[in-house]
Simulated scan of single mutants.
Amino acid sequence: MKRFEDLTEAETLALAIANEEEDSRIYATFAMRLRGDYPATAAVFDGMAEEENEHRRSLLALYERKFGQELPLITRQDVRGFLRRNPVWLAEELRIDVVRRQASIMELEAGQFYARAAERARDTDVRRLLGDLALIEQKHEAVAERLAETHLTEAARTGEDETKRRLLVLQVVQPALAGLIDGSVSTLAPIFAAAFATGNTHETFLVGLAASVGAGISMGLTEAMSDDGAITGRGRPWIRGLACGLATAVGGLGHALPYLIPDFWTATAVAAVVVVVELLAIAWIRWRYMETPFGSALVQIVLGGLLVLLAGIFIGSG
């Protein structure tokens, strides 16, 4: 691996050409992967890829004039200390905010690198060349801003934000909400049945812990195995399963943990308050993300929770 300072002028120019070609392909990949859900942002990356290609062609023409037709094979991986690209484009699902941030970092890092390299260069031709490359990267940033102004109109941004929100709901909120409802409601009966049957807070806590963890594992596996996301667009199964399983466990543990309090009636009162908070949180999530009227969501979830709670108390007291 060579040091950047040891590169010849021809190698430096070849490295710039390879860099422009790779960045162009990265932007083209971003555009291809985002076109279905984020067409406006895809158009921005199409334009940026074309700009990178234009710069590559200009650099190739300059190289041919100075050094001929034979281009040495050298990439950033061959140079010690050269910037590396984070391969976010290899992810199965591209997050729009991550992609935009990655593109900004790519342009900024390249410009800064060339500028610092130009300052360290002792050969005047190399210094001039690296300075030109730094200016090219600065122009890339201006091009990105201009393209964004052209394609990412207010209406386009609004549409893409709505798409982002829809994907969040499908891939995270819905499975987590299903788990939270199951964990908060279904565990009410066994926990309060154990509480009123035994009158022992420690035993009630153990029942609640077992019910919560078991329900979390069961719901997580069910969600993960029910849909691979290939057709429905609901994302990676393990992410949905993890969100559902954790939410289920948290929902049950919420009203199981108060039974760590030694006094039975104090623990039960705290658990009842936690149940109310959980039900309110579920109603709010349904209103915020599922567009369910808050009053309707509250009545539905409170009614269901109350029925399960009374069933647990009745069974435990029998």
Rank of each mutant, 00 (worst) to 15 (best):
R3A: 13
R3D: 14
F4Q: 09
D6C: 09
T8K: 05
T8I: 07
A10F: 07
E11F: 04
E11S: 09
T12R: 13
T12M: 14
L13T: 13
I26D: 03
F30H: 02
M32T: 15
D37C: 13
D37V: 14
E51V: 04
H55D: 04
R56Y: 11
S58K: 11
A61T: 14
A61P: 05
Q69I: 14
E70Q: 14
E70K: 15
I74L: 11
I74F: 07
R80Q: 13
G81R: 08
R84Q: 12
R84P: 06
R84S: 14
N86L: 13
E93Y: 15
L94Y: 01
I96Y: 05
V98F: 10
Q102F: 12
L108C: 09
Q112C: 13
A115I: 00
R116L: 12
R116I: 09
R120G: 13
R120L: 10
T124K: 11
L129Q: 08
L130T: 07
L130F: 10
G131F: 02
A134V: 02
I136C: 00
H140P: 02
V143C: 04
E145R: 15
A148Q: 08
T150K: 13
T150R: 15
A155V: 15
A156V: 08
K164H: 12
V169S: 05
V172F: 05
V173W: 07
P175S: 02
A176T: 06
A176P: 08
I181T: 14
D182C: 12
G183D: 04
G183A: 02
S184I: 04
S186V: 03
I191W: 09
I191Y: 12
F192P: 06
F192T: 09
A193C: 08
G199Y: 04
G199F: 05
F205M: 11
F205S: 06
L206K: 13
L206Y: 13
V207M: 15
L209F: 14
A210L: 11
A210C: 12
A211S: 14
S212L: 11
V213K: 07
L221T: 14
A224H: 03
D227V: 14
D227W: 08
D228N: 15
A230V: 08
G233K: 03
R234W: 03
G235S: 08
W238Q: 11
G245D: 04
T248A: 10
A249M: 15
G252A: 02
G252L: 01
L253Y: 05
G254S: 10
G254E: 01
H255K: 02
A256C: 02
Y259R: 04
Y259I: 08
L260A: 10
L260P: 05
F264C: 05
T268D: 09
A271E: 00
V276G: 06
E278Q: 11
L280R: 10
I285P: 02
R286V: 00
Y289G: 04
P293A: 01
A297Y: 01
A297K: 05
L298N: 04
G304E: 02
L306E: 00
V308Q: 00
G312Q: 00
S317I: 07
